[in-house]
Write a protein that binds this DNA or RNA. Structure first.
Lengths: 322, 322
DNA sequence: TTGTAAGCGTTATCAT
DNA sequence: ATGATAACGCTTACAA
């Protein structure tokens, strides 16, 4: 006999009344509440969440989908878990390694009612195919999807990028290289457009030969600097996909005896803790706030309550590398 | 009518046979399997995992408990999620901010059958009180618990520490400072004992005035260097709680014009990606492998199958800061 | 190989 | 305020 049934038996009340006490329903006499509560405590009772989930159709779990975990993702993840917990939701992490089948498992988990909603950090499946899952629960994306079905809470990185460009040009750097992330992502496109538009507007050279793609890690950053040294041509400045790329470039530049910022100015992206430690100029990216926005979007659908998010902006943080 | 019932009706088979097909039981005729499978696909059927969990008593979810997320934890988390997924388990992250009540929620989730098992990364509640939860499911810890009820897969960090000490002394650094983590943790105790024992065995000075506690972040590392400069006394070498502390120290040392390693040698811990990028001497800590061990320990109880873990060891990685 | 029927532990809808 | 009863969707003895 389950503890629930024991409570029924010991208290003499019905299944329904016991349930009401558990869920703090007001329609219970003080007498019943006191008696049932006492027995619950005595039995060290705790509801079985699978039974609750089956009955209510809600798991109070949100899935978070990402290709890999890294420091940038970590900032989002940490804040999201926190805010979700505040609203009574747990967070399940799905790492996909960019494998479409593996990624699909997360979406199937929405369908099978394992999670109530999904946040996409990065995804590799075609948005067109993913949108069929929207019927099973709310989905919101950090990555820009270029798809109306799956809303994105991403900010336009081109805005931040322009801040960095203005800063560089003001300081006299005009030959600028760009380290992009995923070649086909909307963020990359947005950054690239910002760069080209800004340079043209200033009558400055657009150096497409200094575009590098798939530059994500500090190791990638190091490699590019080595490559430049081998080719014996250095830009005056470089805009990096994130701070970790900037760290790699800065470190390798020092190793190679390149003066920073005199011979090479470096700008990161995100304003991570380490960019401050290492004195890297960067663009502050309110990642945690975006995580909160993401949860609010889900909550809106799940909890039927609109929360107006605060307006977010990029900000240039000038340090020693420019 | 649920899809399950629809399948029963459409196929003409019973509830049990349909269930057998879903679960790939061999005791089904090819005919039945074919027919039921076809209908399942036609209906786009997927089992409701809450119902499965309620019925089987298993959620196929593991909870991971930690005070905060950081880069060191990330290495563990990433590998754990991966290996768990390989075995069909999802991972739920519980961040506690060192709040006991919040931490307890994770343990209550074990009791309420939300998760099948728990991995503790860091925990703040008294192990004595936590062990009452062991009856509800397997618990394994990365942090050393000093408690037989909750097994730990931690390695003895003193071993790694000694490696670093031998390296430093061999290179002529004898005045050594120690940056510890949590003052009362077993890891800290183990490192401190390794230091004191090694120094005494070599007839070298044990500098307790150069013990610093609660040094976790790069910012903490920077502060200590600033403090030393203010006090105008520098050790010859410093052993850091982790690589991020080392990064902070290295960065601040450069800022202050301190020559590394001539005036100050720096050793990190963990061998994170950035320690390589920045050329920091460190101790390789097989964190990912420990995550795998942790899962194996849980699996052993959950899946009734013993997996012999491979033996793990620390290794000194000499780079430019020593 | 297949079927029957009893769980699993709650919530929710009606009545009363 | 309380109770009876039917979901919720699946698994699993036990029988046949």
């Amino acid at each position: 006999m389950s503890k629930f049934d024991q409570i029924i038996k010991l208290s003499g009340y019905s299944r329904a009344t016991v349930s009401r006490v558990i869920n703090h329903s007001p329609h219970v006499s003080d007498e019943a509440r006191a008696k049932i509560t006492a027995i619950m405590e005595q039995l060290n009772y705790i509801p079985n969440r699978n039974a609750v989930s089956l009955s209510t159709g809600q798991t109070k779990q949100i899935g978070m989908v990402m290709a890999n975990t890294n420091e940038v993702v970590l900032a989002f993840l940490e804040r999201f878990i926190d805010i979700a917990m505040d609203y009574g939701f747990q967070t399940i992490i799905y790492t996909t390694r960019e494998d479409k089948t593996s990624e699909l498992r997360a979406f199937e988990d929405l369908r099978s009612k394992r999670v109530d909603g999904l946040v996409i950090i990065t995804c590799v499946n075609d948005p067109k195919m993913l949108k069929t899952y929207c019927q099973y629960g709310p989905i919101v994306s950090w990555q820009r999807m270029g798809n109306d079905e799956i809303p994105s809470i991403a900010m336009d990185q081109g805005m931040g990028y322009t801040l960095a460009l203005e800063h560089l040009v003001k300081r006299g750097y005009t030959h600028i290289a760009n380290m992009f992330g995923r070649a086909d992502s909307l963020n990359t496109r947005s950054r690239r457009e910002a760069y080209e538009q800004f340079m043209e507007s200033q009558g400055l050279p657009v150096r497409r030969d200094w575009y590098h793609y798939s530059v994500f890690t500090s190791a990638n950053g190091e490699q590019i600097v080595q490559q430049w040294m081998a080719e014996q041509e250095l830009p005056q400045a470089v805009l990096c996909a994130n701070d970790y790329v900037a760290i790699g470039m800065l470190s390798e530049a020092r190793r190679q005896g390149i003066e920073v910022p005199e011979q090479l100015a470096i700008v990161g992206f995100d304003d991570s803790e380490l960019s401050r430690t290492l004195g890297i100029t960067t663009i502050r990216n309110p990642i945690g706030d975006q995580a909160v926005h993401a949860f609010y979007r889900l909550w809106e659908v799940l909890g039927q309550e609109h929360i107006e998010p605060k307006r977010l902006e990029y900000e240039l943080i000038a340090r020693e590398t420019t």
